[in-house]
């Protein structure tokens, strides 16, 4: 009994880790050695980037494309577990959350989605599309002052995505996209808890700048695929789909039609 493998213990026992491009699977989540189910049946694709980087739009287009190929797709959003949501929002409203508590609440939300949706769906062979994944937690919690080693260990049980796109955009551009309509920024959203500035907009700007620094360091250390998000939406999507196609090639799902990709890349008459 108690044969669980430890998170972060190193190489996966199966041969999967050895496969080209499968580096990200080397760190397997703890599973019972006797488990029959295998999350490698599915594929996990995540998008990361600051607010206003256009990542959700790109993920939506990818989702539509995969669905159009009759693939089984499930999309999951950051901070969306029903069980946890109410408590988080209550704490947020009160402005009571200290960094460790804040971090753990998001970790709880993630765990709930992971245990109930992400993992079982991967085992069932789904394409799981995550709008933000563990790297969002790394970036935000570290900026808030949690210890990087501690944060990473908390999420160590979670499978690393097969592909993580990082939508890289100059922070000024992303921030101005968000602030264009002078929206009312929420307390934590603006990073007001860090006492960066008394002005929510200025605080937001500084906060986002720090998040970008964290993301940039993750590109290298975690192998995120950086996409230049300064370009047109369609141009970016072509690159995203090319990357996904490559992944499918490795996996050998025959159902994908290469034409779909080519067609998307063709210039279309403007309306």
């Amino acid at each position: 009994m108690d044969k669980t493998t430890h998170a972060g213990d190193g190489e996966a026992r199966s041969g999967r880790a050895a496969r080209k491009g499968m580096r990200s699977r080397a760190k397997l989540s703890p599973r019972r050695a006797s488990a029959v189910s295998d999350p490698s049946a599915g594929r996990l694709i995540a998008v990361e980037g600051v607010d206003g980087s256009g990542k959700s739009t790109q993920l939506h287009l990818l989702e539509q494309w995969l669905r159009h190929q009759n693939l089984k797709v499930f999309k999951t959003d950051w901070n969306s577990s029903e069980t946890v949501k109410q408590i988080t929002s209550r704490g947020k409203k009160k402005g009571l959350l200290t960094p460790t508590t804040f971090s753990l609440l998001h970790a709880t939300d993630f765990a709930d989605r992971y245990e109930r949706n992400i993992l079982p769906l991967l085992e069932a062979g789904y394409f799981v599309l995550a709008d933000r994944y563990i790297f969002t937690a790394y970036a935000r919690d570290i900026v808030r002052g949690c210890h990087p080693g501690w944060v990473k260990k908390i999420y160590s049980y979670a499978l690393k995505p097969d592909l993580t796109f990082y939508f890289r955009v100059p922070v000024d551009i992303a921030v101005s996209r968000i602030l264009m309509g002078r929206p009312k920024l929420k307390y934590y959203e603006a990073g007001m808890d860090m006492n960066l500035s008394n002005d929510p907009y200025e605080s937001y700007r500084i906060f986002q700048g720090r998040i970008v620094e964290q993301y940039e360091s993750l590109v290298e250390s975690e192998g995120l695929v950086a996409i230049d998000a300064n370009r047109g939406i369609e141009e970016q999507q072509v690159e995203v789909r090319e990357r996904v196609m490559k992944l499918l090639g490795e996996k050998g799902i025959g159902a994908m039609k290469t034409e779909a990709l080519q067609e998307y890349g063709k210039p279309r008459p403007r309306a």
Partner: peptide
């Protein structure tokens, strides 16, 4: 609710009291 979720839930609760 899964075991890890519940565990993190308790940890969050505890962190709140602690701080």
């Amino acid at each position: 609710v899964g075991k890890r979720t519940l565990s993190l839930f308790y940890a969050a609760d505890f962190a709140d009291q602690l701080e």
